[in-house]
Nucleic acid binder design. Structure first.
Lengths: 246, 246
DNA sequence: GGGGAGAGATGCCGC
DNA sequence: GCGGCATTTCTCCCC
């Protein structure tokens, strides 16, 4: 089939040129590596990026259904009159075969992109905000120097309350769950052991908290403080055009 | 610019037909929702799926740099002589603007895919294996009925050892970390409280464990058992062609 | 829909 | 590279 050969050549040529490749096709996918998977024939989008990451997307859902990590090796071949994409990552011991039944379209292009994304509203932004405005936690709360954080683990905010009691704050940008409580508990216990202090307060700062987490938190004598993560990029702080012009 | 109008019409038409759309272009992206983000101009792939999920991919990396969840609303317009993709999800209060400088290629196609992926080697496969072969944990270990799991929480495997001591097993398919230990600890404490039994064993079953997690595990009197998750799809169990023919 | 937990999680940063 | 941990996590399952 000259058409199939054409597709294979196009793909291999684009791979050589480090182009990003898009294949709309009907295919089935086999994967073996950290786990094993099988996906029977259906219409999908295959994307191979310049860094040799490979993604297989179904027509629904956010996440790729199958993928190979950046740095994998790919090649297109014709076997038994059908197009096959072999993909392997020897270092990670991962392998993939994509059997292509029908090609809807193929595109490849050299993509140039030197920019990285700027994100605001992360957990880090939350803890920064608390360091700058400690009274957000409660009146009289004082945040300690940032260097203290690393000495006793990845504590988001360390400080003292108005009674000079050592206080550990764990921030969550999302609705705090049981895991967030055990994380806070772990820090408090670690700090109690290393400092030899029994009375250490623990505060979970998040926009919301689940009922079960709230209960466990209170059972352990900790507290919840409702705080929203700040969401303002420098761009917008400087009075430029707002994003919400819809 | 008639060409831009052409692109916009093509995109809006494909959106109406629930096609999956691929746009290779130079663009900048603004997002506002759970967080805020800004990404300056660069070459990217934009994918809009049949379920109205939107992904923006840079030429490197596994994950999309920006995205909108399934069920969002998209429309292409020409504003100030340039192509703009507006995207919004009113329910989730999420908004995105994509400013397209240059279009490298556009493709759209109606994708039909009725299959779901089959995966082997998950944590569930691990706990199933232990239920079927409890001696993998230790001689004399007996797994209780599966129904017991739900009654006292999401316990992977519940059983008794050769001395008839209640034993909780937490499985991890990956290298067990501190979170895995606190999870096991939470289950043991919950079970101790609800059953009024003090002596309950906790075993963490995983392929590996970090040094710190091992230490914390032992500090709490729990144990580690090295177990690999099983990786054999039914397809391969039945003696069919192996995937590792490379 | 909320809550809990896994994921072939991924990715970042720190030691 | 290991380790700890956030993620616009996403996704599934169960109540």
């Amino acid at each position: 089939m000259p058409e199939l050969n054409n597709h294979a050549e196009k793909i291999n040529s684009a791979l050589n040129k480090n182009q990003t490749i898009i294949i709309g096709c009907n295919c089935k996918v086999e994967y073996s590596g950290r786990a094993e998977s099988f996906l029977d024939f259906g219409d999908r989008i295959i994307m191979i990026k310049a860094d040799k990451a490979l993604l297989v997307h179904q027509p629904k859902g956010n996440a790729p259904v199958n993928y190979m990590k950046p740095g994998s090796f790919h090649s297109a071949k014709i076997e038994d009159n059908s197009l096959i994409l072999h993909s392997s990552n020897l270092g990670l011991k991962e392998f993939m075969n994509i059997f292509v039944n029908q090609v809807h379209f193929i595109n490849s292009h050299k993509l140039e992109d030197g920019h990285t994304i700027t994100i605001s509203g992360t957990e880090k932004d939350m803890s920064d905000m608390i360091y700058e405005n400690p009274e957000l936690i409660e009146p009289g709360f004082k945040a300690a120097s940032r260097e203290e954080q690393t000495k006793y683990g990845f504590i988001d905010v360390l400080g003292v309350d108005k009674n000079n009691t050592l206080t550990i704050i764990e921030c969550k940008r999302y609705c705090a769950d049981l895991g967030a409580v055990t994380q806070l508990r772990r820090y408090v216990e670690k700090m109690q052991a290393s400092k030899g202090i029994k009375e250490i307060r623990g505060i979970l700062a998040a926009s919301k908290i689940t009922n079960n987490a709230k209960k466990m938190l209170e059972d352990w004598g900790f507290q919840f403080k409702a705080i929203e993560p700040p969401k303002h990029l420098e761009k917008y702080k400087k009075g430029q055009k707002k994003l919400d012009n819809f």
